[in-house]
Structures are given as structure tokens and as C-alpha cells.
Design a protein around this nucleic acid. Structure first.
Lengths: 339, 339
DNA sequence: TGGAGTTACGTTATCGTTATCTCAATCCTG
DNA sequence: CAGGATTGAGATAACGATAACGTAACTCCA
């Protein structure tokens, strides 16, 4: 026999009437501002409970110009790298009273710009952008009107945003150096999206290591940062496969996407080609041979970014930029030296 | 020499003053309501452009009691099953003018309840709940105040919500039947979260198929629906492994988590144990042996759910419930019959 | 006992938008 | 060219919550 819920949800005025006080008093009680008598307080709380009153977030936001919402923009939510970052960010945001609005850009700069505008409309109190794909000028313009911004893996505009960067350069350098020591000489690079700053960092790392040994890249091909990108690289690489004995991939997905086509073409990993990914997504440890990669503490990264963002929202721009080091994880696609 | 952006973002009144008209006229022009002269229209648009005016979503929502935001609640965003659903939902929501607020519950009913309340505060116009973990009563109470709800894989409360279900029962039945035909007799079930309705459906499918052959389950163990859950099942299973020659897993992650421990214990897949997962996440086709699984059109699922939700928001409750069939994908963990 | 200080509320105005009403100017149409 | 229809635009009043201010009643001590 329960009634249909009223079409209109109860407002503070409804509660006030039910409790026989003014809306202002209800507001005071519910926000613990004090200045309300014990008896009144009780009546208000009872009324609010009875009506299952929930303050209207819009009205509140309109009044104080704060949404208690923060955004996070990622290139592709289906890429396993990003959900972990989102989870980390959410883990910090929620206890701090913020709702996280996560937005998917599907690797499209236009979409990124659009999303940044949408977040502005929603008046988020701040936002995190992962691996921005916009060029510097458009990115700057898009973040300028925002109250607080943290960029992950994009060290542009330090004046207007905090930054957290993974030191891919050093990580990749170390891995390539080790591979050279293991006898690899002819390196290819599956470079990922051309617009990625992280991609350029990885390239610098490779080239630095190679240069120290008088070597240079044999292949350097852009591709989408997913399994299919790896498959496409494989297709283009196969005719001239003998030119390469080690592939460094922008991320694990690309590396994993490479493995099956190589195998089907009779090219052995790691005997013919050593393979290195980046990110250490869970799948990389499940395939055979297991994939050597650079591990990034993804959830930590998300947590750090959110903490930095909340600091900036609160006006405490304590740290402008953080650099975190990736960990090389040596697995079967890059065998140890014999002996 | 550009000025610092004003602390306060421009309002419709600012635009009105710049254009020398009333705010109402600006509103009309910007919303294409007509009733504005050509010359006026031009001036307003110019002024809005010049100030890079963006209407305040709060004020708008407060006025028309619509947020143009919909929520989607998932148990765990790190589980690769869900990002694809989210992407599908977003692909439909955005062109329709809706922002998608995706919320992560981390497999915790309390959190789920909390999130549903938060979405109520934010006055979402509707929401999709994936694999709700709340019991019927609490779920019903939590969704009652919402304007429109679609449940994925949870056929409770058809009166208050649209539902989309995967017919796991039939899918699992078909797979188990085939495995029996291939000679497997002793089945174990890694059942996933006890609160999952989908888990019960899978169990029904297994038991139906087994019953037709006078068989019954040897193992039926709950576990978390992730790699670690699989590893734990493996640990508990190992002492008595000989009792089982086929494992059906709640999802691919569990199955994949099982594989390495089994291998390390010298148990061969598929020779000693056939292995079946569910969902067909990308990793399942990358491991060796590749995992047999039930494929679910995850992105389609998300798209369908969002279309259904938008229908319900618009008051068109055309279809109450949809059932979609999973596709068995036969791979190496369940070898074909010899001959 | 009277004025200052305190407590417990209520009133008013405001955030930015827009539905509704109003009004003036312009347009036909017979 | 009178009178009704149409068009362009402004004024007003909400939406729900709350900051700022106002006020009545009470406390307290000289």
C-alpha cells in the first residue's frame, strides 16, 4: 500500500513546514552551523528523515559557486592503463567530499576539447587530464578558464597547471641499454599516437641509449595505442622483419597485439625478436612468453594527481611538478644473457 | 599582454549588457527559441562569443529540474568487462545531449548504496546499474526515488526499472553440454561474488546440463571476480585437483588467474582440466592456451542500456526487459574431440 | 532595573536561467 | 485605414539553498 513517491522531491521548505520552522533554521541544523535549540533541532532532523530530504546540489552549487565535483579526462577508458588511474583518483576524491566525473576522449583531440568545455559548463572545481592529445596552444586555451588543473604526462603550461610525469626517458633508456648489453642491435619502435608527449619521451630514451653505442633506430612507426595498433605494426613490419631484433612498444597493448601475428609468421619471441612493452597491465604477465615492460604505479599515480588537484583547489600550490620513475619488469620476452 | 581571466565567469546578464539587450533576449537567442530580430540576434551572438560565455548548468538545472546527466554504476572499473559497457553507454548518451557520470562501487554494497544516494543528490535524470550487489529490498529502496533506472544483469523490480539481462543460463548450459559430449565428467564452478544474480544464472546453467546426464557439481566455490580470485580458487583446489576435469569460471579474469598456478603445479590445461571463462575480455585470446569463453557484446550492451534509459527518461517505457544471448567462443582450453 | 551581551530564530536578497506575462511596434487584410 | 494578428523585446517571478542581516526573548551583572 505504499504511496507512489511524489513526483517532486522534497525541498528545504517542505522540511521547514513539516517541522514548523523557517527554511533557514532547517539549513542551519542540517549543516551543523549551530544557533538552533535542542528541541527545534530534533524536530527538524525528524522531519528531514521522514521526508527523506536530500539537499539539491544545484541550488547549493549555484549559491556557493562550488560543485564539489572534479573531472578526469582519459584518452580511452578501455585501455587498462586508465581505469586504475581513475580508481586511484576516486579513492582520494570521495573521502574528501568530491564526486569524480570521468570522461572518455576516445583518442580524439576534438572530443577532448569538447569534453573540456563540457566540464566547464558543469563547473567542476578542478580536473585532471591524462595524456592530453591537444597541441599546446589549444590545450592552454582549453584549460585557462578552469579553476584548477593537473596534467598527467604532459608538461605543458606549468604556470597554469600542476604536472605529474612518468620519467619514460630514463626507464626506456635503462631497458634499451640492458638489451644492447644482451646483444641486441637493431631496434624498432612502435611509437603509439604521434600527439603523445610520453611517446616522444620514450623515443628520446631509446635514442639516447642507442647513441651511446653508435646505433640508431631501424623502425619508428606511429600506431594506435591498442591491440589493433600492434597488429598493424606487425603487418607492416613482417616483410622486413629481419631488419630488427628488438621492438620497443609505446605500451603493453601494442606489444601484445604484435605477439600473435609474429608467432603466426613463424617469428620467435624472444629468439628472433625481443619485445618490450610499457605500463605493466595485468595481461602482460599472463601471456607466454610473459612480456617485459616498464611498470608504472598506476593507482598511486591517480592518487597523487588527485591529492595535487585538491591542494590546488584549496589554493595550496605546494608542488608544481612531480616526476615518478617507472620500474623495469624483466620477463620472458627479453631473456637473460646466457652464462 | 592578455588579461587574467576574470575570477567570475560571465553570466547571461553580462552578455545582455554587452549586447545592449535584456537577459531574456540573450536566453532566447542562445536557445534558438526564435522571437528575436536578425540584427539583435547577431549582436547577442557576437557578445556571447566575445565573452566566451557559457551558460551555467546549475542555474539551468535548477530552473528546469533536469540535469542532462545520467549515471552508470559498475562494481569495478578495473574489471575490463565494464569499461566497454561504459563506452557503449557514453557513445549513445553524448549525442543525445547527456553527460555520463560513471561510478565505481569496488564490489561493496555499502558503497553502492552511498553512490546511489550521491547520484540522487546530483539529480541525475536517470541511471544504469550494472550487476547490482545490493539485496532486493535495499536495491528497491535505493532506486525508488530515481526518475528512471535500467538494471543490467539484475532482474529485480521490473515495475520500477527496465532490465537487460545476459542469458548466462542458456550459454553456460550449452558449453557444459558440449564439454560433457567431449568426455568431461567432473565439473567445478568458480562462482564469483555470492551476491551476483549472474552467478546464480550460471550455476543454474551448469546444473541443468549436468542433471541431464546424471552428474552434479564437484566444487562450487565463491571468489572475487578478478585474477586474485582465480589464484585463490587455485590454491584451495590444488590439494584435491584430481577430483575435477573441467572448471567453469564466473568470468575470464578468474579463469586467467587460475591458469598460472595450475601450470606451476604441473597440471595441464586442457589435458588435465578444461577451462571456461565468461565475458571474452581481450586478454583471453592472448594467453596460451587461449581461453574458451562466452562472448558478450559488451559495447552493444552499454548502448542498448543507454537507449532504454533515454526512452524511459522520455517517458517511453516501450520495452520492459531485454535478454541477450552470449556466444560460446571455443578456444584451446577446451579442445575439440579427437576424430 | 536597565543596558549590554547572547541565543534562537525569521526575513530578505541573491546565485544564473528561463517560463510566462506584458507591451509596443509593425503588418496585413478587406 | 481601422482593427486584429503578428513580431520583438522587456519585466517579473520563480527554481532551492543560504549569507547577511534583523529581531525578539532571555541572561547577567553593576
Amino acid at each position: 500500500m505504499d504511496m507512489k513517491p511524489a513526483l517532486r522531491s522534497p525541498t528545504i521548505t517542505d522540511v521547514a513546514e513539516a517541522a514548523g520552522v523557517s527554511p533557514m533554521t532547517v539549513s542551519r541544523v542540517l549543516n551543523g552551523r549551530g544557533g538552533a535549540g535542542e528541541e527545534t533541532r530534533r524536530r527538524v532532523l525528524e522531519a528531514a528523515q521522514a521526508l527523506s530530504y536530500r539537499p539539491n546540489a544545484f541550488a547549493k552549487s549555484l549559491k556557493n559557486d562550488r560543485s564539489n565535483t572534479v573531472g578526469i579526462v582519459v584518452p580511452d577508458i578501455v585501455n587498462p592503463f586508465f581505469p586504475e588511474i581513475i580508481r586511484g583518483a576516486e579513492l582520494v576524491a570521495r573521502p574528501a567530499g568530491y564526486t569524480l566525473l570521468s570522461c572518455n576522449v576516445v583518442e580524439d583531440p576534438e572530443r577532448e576539447e569538447e569534453v573540456l568545455g563540457m566540464l566547464l559548463d558543469k563547473r567542476v572545481d578542478g580536473l585532471i587530464i591524462c595524456s592530453a592529445r591537444l597541441d599546446d596552444e589549444r590545450l592552454l586555451r582549453a584549460i585557462a578558464p578552469h579553476r584548477a588543473v593537473v596534467l598527467i604526462n604532459r608538461a605543458a603550461a606549468k604556470r597554469h597547471a600542476g604536472t605529474i610525469e612518468v620519467d619514460y626517458r630514463a626507464g626506456v633508456d635503462a631497458v634499451v641499454t640492458q638489451l644492447i648489453a644482451q646483444g641486441r642491435r637493431r631496434f624498432g619502435f612502435a611509437a603509439g599516437p604521434a600527439a603523445s608527449q610520453g611517446g616522444r619521451k620514450r623515443r628520446e630514451g631509446i635514442e639516447a641509449a642507442l647513441a651511446r653505442h653508435g646505433l640508431s633506430l631501424v623502425f619508428d612507426l606511429p600506431c594506435t595505442p591498442d591491440l589493433q595498433g600492434g597488429a598493424e605494426i606487425a603487418a607492416r613490419l613482417l616483410p622486413e622483419i629481419a631488419q630488427v631484433d628488438a621492438m620497443i612498444c609505446y605500451n603493453d597493448l601494442i606489444a601484445l597485439g604484435l605477439m600473435k601475428p609474429l608467432e603466426q609468421a613463424g617469428i620467435r619471441v624472444p629468439e628472433d625478436i625481443a619485445l618490450v612493452g610499457c605500463d605493466d597491465i595485468p595481461a602482460s604477465d599472463l601471456v607466454s612468453p610473459a612480456l617485459t615492460t616498464l611498470r608504472i604505479a598506476k593507482q598511486d599515480l591517480g592518487e597523487m594527481a588527485m591529492r595535487m588537484l585538491l591542494d590546488r583547489i584549496a589554493g595550496r600550490n605546494t608542488q608544481q611538478g612531480i616526476v615518478i620513475e617507472p620500474d623495469p619488469i624483466w620477463r620472458a620476452t627479453t631473456p637473460r644473457l646466457p652464462g
